[in-house]
């Protein structure tokens, strides 16, 4: 009887078969083909070798694109963390109505179309945009500053576009912290800064790591924001892949850069996952 009772609470693993089959056919197979194609020595095919990878790794331009993409992700993630953490903190200590409002403000950009969000930044940063108009009105500048098509512009726009991905996991982590711990810390004489540094921050590490992972992965792959705010002079990996594949029709090279990019992303993801396990052990201890 006990066995039959347990059986009714689980469903047959076979229910996952249709999606699993779909994923093997339309997700795993294409990625395998991408990998295979990256070893083709020329677009016409036939010969296989490491030509494309050698071309990528031996080319300072290509390596520069990879480096600036990965570095862009670091800058965006740091800025997003510095701005996003206090938002999560404020959400945690606000009364109910304010919590709802903060949540709405955080979720809205997450669900608004990326093109719309990026378009807003074009309007804000443009020569006749809100920043330049305000500075000119204040008499601080005579000629409009160049904000659009600069890396600073890309970093700020990406930080806004990806901030929800940082704030939401930190809110989760902060809500799991026993409020008595902060009280205990202050009763024992620690000030607010010290309590924050020694108690709250370490305990919210799992949320920080999860947020950084999501933000980083989203920032380096954010094709639309990178190309619209960065303009033609700044080239990042997603656009580089697209140019090689679509404009130049050089599929083997595009496949090779995709694989290099994929591996970089997976490497970063696994580093963050390892950090996440460490920080969870720390937070639970």
């Amino acid at each position: 009887m006990a066995a039959t009772l347990r059986d009714v609470t689980t469903y047959d693993l076979k229910l996952a078969a249709p999606l699993a089959a779909g994923f093997v056919l339309f997700f795993v197979t294409p990625l395998a083909i991408l990998l295979a194609l990256s070893f083709q020595t020329d677009p016409q095919g036939g010969h296989y070798g490491l030509t494309q990878y050698v071309a990528f790794l031996g080319d300072s331009f290509s390596l520069g694109v990879l480096g600036s993409t990965l570095w862009l992700g670091v800058k965006v993630t740091v800025l997003t963390l510095l701005l996003g953490y206090p938002v999560a903190w404020l959400h945690q200590r606000s009364p109910g109505w304010a919590r709802g409002l903060i949540m709405l403000l955080v979720l809205l950009p997450l669900l608004t179309s990326v093109v719309v969000r990026t378009f807003a930044w074009v309007v804000i940063l443009g020569r006749q945009g809100i920043v330049n108009a305000t500075l000119a009105w204040l008499g601080l500048i005579d000629t409009p500053l160049k904000l659009l098509y600069t890396e600073g512009g890309v970093v700020v726009a990406l930080a806004q576009v990806q901030m929800p991905l940082m704030v939401l996991p930190i809110i989760t982590a902060l809500s799991r912290i026993d409020p008595n711990l902060a009280d205990a810390s202050s009763v024992l004489g620690a000030g607010h800064w010290r309590t924050f540094r020694k108690v709250i921050l370490p305990l919210s590490l799992p949320g920080i790591v999860a947020g950084c992972l999501l933000t980083y992965a989203a920032a380096i792959t954010a094709f639309i924001t990178q190309s619209l705010i960065g303009g033609g002079q700044m080239l990042f990996m997603p656009m580089y892949i697209y140019q090689q594949a679509s404009t130049l029709q050089n599929w083997p090279f595009a496949a090779a850069i995709s694989i290099v990019f994929l591996v970089s992303v997976l490497l970063v993801v696994s580093i963050f996952n390892a950090l996440g396990r460490l920080s969870r052990g720390y937070a639970d201890a």
Partner: peptide, 23 residues
């Protein structure tokens, strides 16, 4: 299977798009 079904979330979608076109 759980990891497989969630993996498109972290993979660069552009690389997936290109690989699908090749497929």
């Amino acid at each position: 299977l759980d990891s497989l079904f969630l993996s498109p979330l972290v993979l660069p979608a552009l690389a997936f798009g290109l690989s699908s076109l090749m497929f």
